[in-house]
């Protein structure tokens, strides 16, 4: 079947509840792009132009449907004062959380055009937008307040405080929310669609109750802010989210990106109100044979395109950095083979 639309046209139809020629295919090709561009990871996440060039190289290599501006979820926490190490061949590693040095009251809302690596993202967006923005949507991943909050603290202490000192956690959440809003504000002005990522709010990490009390209200607030712009907002939570599927509807997200969830169950529960994104197992894309990937992706996409409000064929989480390119190509080819809506 011949493709009629560009990725941007395809995404544009999806978000107004129209069926495009085929489903959007957006595996979460983030830092894996540095591999495709044969670039050291440190360069990828510390240099905006390099990040954009790697993403463009990945688009040219794979022909998927969006650029993903992202390296890791600590980026806002870093700009708020958490210290990170930058290994040459790995993603940044948290060294000292901000709240081990300062009180929450003393932490400042970062200025995205100035502080730490937030400008790297903005530069990457600008470069990618200028290069491919008419053809391909640019997605910029923004850590949700809960995830940022945990990156500001020692995670163990943070989780204990959700029980012992919820007011303190809410103060952290409020500040993280403000920081995320400021970042989104500049992301939009640079030309990218913010995608909210909240991996540490996963049921693999916290209970549904903790999610409901501490993560969801701030995801919702951030999404409400973005809805003022009439933007269609993607929420991504990795890991297991089956226990909170019903709660996801309360976030107000327009598209939800899922990881370790039964896709049919997610479609049943969410697809009347949300477009579903997902959810190929990332360990399989890294380690399975192309033949296995071909078959399983086809099965997934055949189920996915039945989703009422629309579907994006994707991986459940980021494509692992060292994934063989052949496997990613296979994923995309499989989805292209069976993901058609138009005759």
């Amino acid at each position: 079947m011949r493709e009629t639309l560009t990725p941007r046209e395809r995404f544009g139809l999806l978000v107004i509840d129209e069926k495009p020629d085929r489903c959007n295919i957006i595996p979460l090709v983030t830092s894996h792009a540095a591999e495709i561009a044969r670039m050291k990871l440190k360069k990828y996440y510390t240099n905006g132009e390099a990040m954009a060039r790697a993403q463009i190289a990945a688009i040219e290599e794979y022909g998927h449907d969006a650029i993903s501006i992202f390296s890791e979820v600590g980026i806002i926490a870093e700009a708020m004062g958490s210290d990170f190490d930058y290994p040459d061949d790995d993603l940044p590693v948290i060294k000292r959380p901000a709240l081990t040095k300062k009180n929450i009251e003393d932490i400042k809302i970062p200025v995205p055009k100035r502080d730490k690596r937030l400008p790297v993202y903005l530069e990457a967006i600008g470069y990618a937008y200028q290069s491919l923005g008419d053809k391909v949507p640019i997605l910029a991943y923004v850590p949700a307040p809960f995830t940022t909050g945990m990156m500001l603290s020692d995670p163990k202490t943070f989780l204990i405080q959700t029980i012992r000192d919820p007011d303190h956690i809410k103060k952290i959440m409020e500040k993280s929310l403000q920081a995320a809003i400021e970042f989104c504000y500049d992301i939009i002005d640079a030309g990218a669609l913010p995608i909210i990522v909240d991996p540490l709010a996963s049921s693999s990490v916290v209970s549904p109750k903790a999610y409901k009390n501490f993560a969801l209200p701030y995801e919702r607030a951030l999404i409400d802010f973005l809805h003022r712009y009439d933007l269609d907002i993607i929420l991504h939570i990795c890991g297991n989210t089956e226990p909170i599927l019903d709660l996801l509807l309360e976030t107000g997200a327009d598209l939800v990106s899922l990881d370790q969830v039964d896709l049919s169950l997610a479609i049943e529960k969410l697809s009347k109100r949300m477009r579903i994104i997902g959810n190929f197992d990332t360990s399989k894309i890294a380690f399975s044979s192309p033949e296995e990937i071909m078959e399983e992706v086809k099965n997934m996409v055949k189920r996915g395109i039945k989703s009422k409000k629309g579907y994006i064929a994707s991986t459940g989480c980021e494509v692992p950095i060292k994934t063989p390119p052949e496997n990613v190509r296979t994923f995309i080819n499989a989805a292209k083979e069976v993901g058609w809506y138009w005759e």
């Binding site: 941007r8 008419d134 939009i188 002005d189 030309g191 990218a192 669609l193 712009y229 009439d230």
Partner: peptide, 13 residues
């Protein structure tokens, strides 16, 4: 009632 930035995000460069 969206500002110009919204339409830029959707491709009006």
């Amino acid at each position: 009632l969206s500002p110009p930035a919204t339409f830029m995000v959707y491709g009006a460069r």
